[in-house]
Design a protein around this nucleic acid. Structure first.
Lengths: 338, 338
DNA sequence: TTGTACGCGTTATCAT
DNA sequence: ATGATAACGCGTACAA
């Protein structure tokens, strides 16, 4: 095991002061070309890498970003977080950041964790997922000036539509940097696909009102599907059994729908299981379950979303500029279910 | 935002020196009871938390553990890693450790990442997953004396059976701490369940020889299933389509099997799709896909495995004792497919 | 380009 | 046995 190579080792090797080595790394233009090269060679030869702890003590920058890892609920949508985490990790590395994981049972526990992580590890920033109406986490972080990005737009007060709220979309005061996938566009694309296939009565199975994401997904369907909307929509908590029940219910009305747009692959899996042949079903998230069942599903560009989260956070941290929010388009993966 | 609370703040508040505060935290028996209480109260009142960076510089201990996040292959088994990561994060926190993520394309890149993480963040240890025969990562770490645990036993040279290798099981010299799930016991349980249900010809669909885990799973089936084994087994790379093909093949032989034990839920999903009614199928990993399809599947105790990984690593780090390997029993989750 | 102080907690040494 | 003082680790900010 080679001895520890510090900035002093490099300085000695290159016959300069420690400070000059630091300058070569951080403000190279201040160092004469010839010296710079000599130092760089010493760095390469010795395999020197700056110690983050020492750097942190001076600069207050840990180059660490934290993200919460949630427990996999029914596991169907769990892989979404998994892919997002992988994208985050891959995008962070070239930008000079690492990803730290934390778990928290609820928002309050999560805030306590922020406090702890900031105090002990001086985290540079947070990536929040699963944002919701009246999220206390964002206000806590904002109040303290802690940099963060959310994957999921700020939902503000209950019932407000972000697309009609200039403040949220522009990232103006009171808001914060965010990256989101256009959920409404996703269900709209699925609905359009069904219309193109000749379906005229298209139902929707989603979640109870109040979850921003769920409301968006329903809105995309509603804006595209046509008339008679309320009677063609059912709301339920997420789950396969719940999807079965809702589909059963919807298909039992007079003049039933011939196609069902679902807010998740869990619901779609249930619906697809009870739907008679000819009734089309679409899901959301393009999970492994959708692939195996042959469910047409809306795919979120998770790697891209993660990369943009890192971009935004790095922008705040390095540039200081308030970055523009990012709204990414989903895509429809067509399989045999629709 | 409250001012930063350092050890000096606490010392001033409690009317002692900084050193005494440090002693209260690290060697409390050296401090008089009354003083100790006063300091502890100051710590609580001020909400003091030691700065890890400063501590690290002195002690060389970052309290950071790293684990690789792999890209989700077909997504079906991806949730396994997800659950493991969550377990790791939850188990690490109370032990005073945090989990750092990294991505790497292959073993060589992973080793380069070790080098970087050790040099820049002074990681305390690594948790390795997906160990395989002749793993260069473990030897690299072992040579440098870097603490690590593997989820998956050391496979040693190709073809060696860890259960017959005392060195591997005992954690003796040349080995390293590991946690594993008894894969053979898992497929054995599935096979026994099928025997109990009256099946007499039980086939197996697994992976090509050489992957330690795959060989274990086959061995569990072979030891339990009975006669005519070679003709009842098929090997293929993992995947739903591959499972379909292998099942189709196995069910086409003369005197075909009436039940199929599969090495993964992906293979089982494929097999279940083409198997005629009455042919039982079991999978491995109890993924969401198994739940949705109603596949009987072997479940790994991932949270437990993760917790034991942390235990072992913490043991090495804090105690210095060479810990015993851990072999956990899987459980069979019975659904309608078998 | 260089010298020097600094950040913060711990270890070593010294005084009571 | 307690507590205080000083030095240390490593990279950077600032002044020289």
């Amino acid at each position: 095991m080679a001895d520890k190579v510090t900035i002093a080792t490099v300085a000695a090797h290159a016959n300069v002061s420690r400070q000059t080595v630091s300058n070569v790394l951080n403000t190279p233009h201040l160092v004469r070309e010839e010296t710079r090269e000599r130092v760089r060679e010493a760095i390469a030869v010795l395999g020197y890498r700056a110690n983050q702890a020492a750097r942190l003590m001076r600069t207050g920058r840990s180059h660490l970003l934290a993200v919460r890892i949630e427990p996999t609920r029914d596991g169907i949508n769990g892989s979404v977080l998994d892919r997002f985490l992988h994208g985050l990790t891959e995008a962070a590395a070239p930008a000079g950041y690492r990803i730290l994981l934390y778990a928290a049972a609820d928002d309050q526990a999560e805030i306590a964790t922020y406090d702890d992580l900031l105090a002990t590890y001086e985290l540079d920033g947070f990536v929040l997922t699963s944002t919701h109406h009246g999220d206390v986490r964002t206000s806590w972080l904002a109040e303290r000036g802690v940099p963060f990005v959310t994957f999921g737009r700020p939902w503000g007060r209950l019932g407000a539509d972000a697309r009609t709220e200039p403040a949220a979309l522009s990232g103006a005061a009171g808001s914060h940097p965010w990256v989101d996938v256009d959920n409404a566009a996703g269900t709209a694309a699925a609905t359009r696909h069904l219309l193109d296939a000749g379906h005229r009565r298209i139902g929707f199975i989603g979640w109870p009102e109040g979850s921003g994401v769920g409301d968006e997904r329903r809105a995309g369907w509603a804006a595209t599907a046509g008339a008679d909307l309320p009677e063609l929509a059912r709301a339920t908590v997420d789950g396969v059994a719940e999807g079965e029940a809702a589909a059963h219910d919807l298909l039992s009305i007079s003049d039933p729908p011939t196609a069902l747009v679902c807010a998740s692959d869990s619901l779609a899996a249930g619906a697809y299981g009870v739907a008679p042949p000819g009734v089309a079903v679409t899901g959301f998230d393009d999970t492994a379950v959708a692939r195996v069942l042959g469910l047409t599903s809306v795919a979120q560009p998770l790697a891209e979303a993660a990369a943009r989260c890192v971009d935004l956070l790095a922008g705040v941290l390095d540039g200081g500029a308030a970055p523009h929010p990012v709204l990414l388009p989903p895509s429809l993966v067509i399989r045999q279910s629709a």
